[in-house]
Design a protein around this nucleic acid. Structure first.
Lengths: 141, 141
DNA sequence: GTCAGTGCAAACCCTTTGCAGAAAG
DNA sequence: CTTTCTGCAAAGGGTTTGCACTGAC
């Protein structure tokens, strides 16, 4: 699991992380990565943008979306699809699952080893698994 | 699992099914239900609309969405969220899981008893589980 | 007659796109 | 220099909404 601090921008650790994933470290991408990896978290594109632009405009909406899609494709972050019409980006790419509160929108992690998932079904011929998403949906009592 | 034939519209079985779920059986709802329960299947709102209106206009888009949301809320069908920006409606509400082919968009069922899911995590205090979604994502080799 | 349901078009929200200018190597 | 990236605004796709009309009981 990757966690970076603001200072890692100055030391070049963020840039190195991007480079490791074959992502050219432009300044916008570095800023976005710094926000994502400040802690393990689930952020919408919207939130990423407002966090990056907190003090002054740094990235445009188009760049936020382009960058998040790029990071997801390169395996740096994971898309979590919970809700039609909204994607969350999870800065923790370790295998794990989620609990989603439909009332509050809160999304919690469940470590993979807390749950047992066995006897996975055969998948269709000539296909390969890209991921397994488990979402436990809860609501307030 | 519910499966109805076209003839069940005439015999009133569709109407009875809706009534059992406290849904007033308007003619549009009956037509939509007949399409959904013609077989166990996964349909988008769009597809439901074009199937219902195959021969002549019967329902508007607004009514399709209103009706699908109503059916889902009443537990007659299940929403399957696979993709941001698109909901599938599953006419099979028995507990089961899904395999989704990201290349073809094909959605397959996995019977609940084919898989083992155990040691579910504790959920937050004062919440209750409303459902568990498991999606195995595959792509073509 | 009353209340719920329907249809239409417009509004909405999130996301993507086209294209000109800017920046990276 | 060349290629990739960025920003803006506009377009896109699926879904919801406001409101007058219609239909169910």
């Amino acid at each position: 699991m990757i966690v970076l601090t603001d200072n890692d921008i100055n030391t070049g650790r963020v840039q190195a992380l991007l480079a490791e994933h074959a992502i050219r470290p432009t300044s916008q991408r570095v800023q976005i990565a710094a926000v994502l990896f400040a802690q393990p978290q689930h952020l919408s594109a919207d939130l990423v943008m407002s966090k990056v632009n907190r003090t002054r405009p740094i990235v445009s909406k188009a760049t936020v979306y382009n960058t998040l899609n790029l990071f997801a494709k390169k395996g740096l972050i994971r898309e979590v699809i919970i809700d039609s019409g909204k994607v969350f980006y999870d800065s923790n790419t370790d295998v794990h699952h989620h609990i989603y509160n439909e009332d509050t929108g809160m999304l919690l992690d469940v470590a993979a080893d807390e749950m047992v998932i066995e006897n996975l079904p055969d998948i269709p011929a000539n296909t390969e698994t890209t991921g397994i998403d488990v979402i436990i949906r809860v609501k307030n009592k």
